[in-house]
Amino acid sequence: GKIIGTDILFLENFANKMELEVNILEKEFEGLWNMPGLGECDIAAAGMMAFGRDLGDSGIWSQSYMSVKRSLLIRQTDIDVLQEPKNFSGKKIVVTPESAAHIDAIERYQKYGAIIIPTVPSQNEIVNQILTGEIDAFGEGNVSNEFLAEHFADKNGSQPFALTDIHDMSLPEKLCFAVRLTDKKLMYILNEFINEYFIT
């Protein structure tokens, strides 16, 4: 299916303004930030932080375009019982492997007996698994989870999902794009666009 999310929407708006064509490639999260430097794409986007990730001589991090908090996407019917980490004993939480959500889930929920599942087949599949009760939550940034909750609302506008346990990590999360350095003009105009549309 089509890849959706706040990162993609932001870059589509950027491309439209610059009159550029968009060609979206789907890759695994691990090592995604290296793709521009390897010449496989111009910009890599997946809610990534620059901290601790060296892009070498062929890639560069953009300015931060968004600050996020951690959150869990759950069934609306569970909102009264799943409000804090200790409530997730025995509950299944899916996260993107090697992501900030993965680190946060291990540190915050695993000690209370939550089952952390580091695999994301697709957003549609995750949403379906939450609704059918196969899993209980999806760990992601609050902006992305809010986007999913709104995107998958039913035709009547009813919200089957809710966000819970919204919190900061110890290191503030400022998201950036990894950009191919061979085209310095691309980095310049992307940063200009970020300055104009920065989301706090």
Rank of each mutant, 00 (worst) to 15 (best):
G52E: 06
F51L: 10
P36Q: 07
T77W: 04
A44Q: 08
I74H: 11
K92E: 01
Y188E: 04
Q83W: 10
D80I: 11
S62F: 09
M18Q: 15
K17W: 03
Y65R: 14
L175H: 04
Y109Q: 11
W61G: 08
L32C: 07
K111D: 08
I4S: 01
I116N: 04
G157C: 04
D168H: 09
A45H: 06
A101G: 15
D136N: 14
I79P: 06
G37F: 08
L32E: 10
G139Q: 04
Q76L: 02
L163V: 00
V68S: 14
P97W: 06
L190S: 04
I79N: 14
P97S: 08
T119C: 13
C41W: 08
Q83R: 15
E146W: 10
L82P: 10
R180V: 02
V22C: 05
P97C: 05
A114L: 03
R180P: 00
A178Q: 01
A50S: 12
G59D: 11
H151V: 01
Q110H: 13
E84G: 09
P118T: 12
N23C: 07
E12W: 07
G157F: 05
P118K: 13
M49Y: 02
E125K: 13
E140V: 12
S89N: 14
A100D: 12
L190E: 01
E98W: 11
G47F: 02
Q110N: 14
A162M: 02
S71E: 09
N34Y: 05
E21K: 13
A137Q: 00
G90Q: 12
E84Q: 15
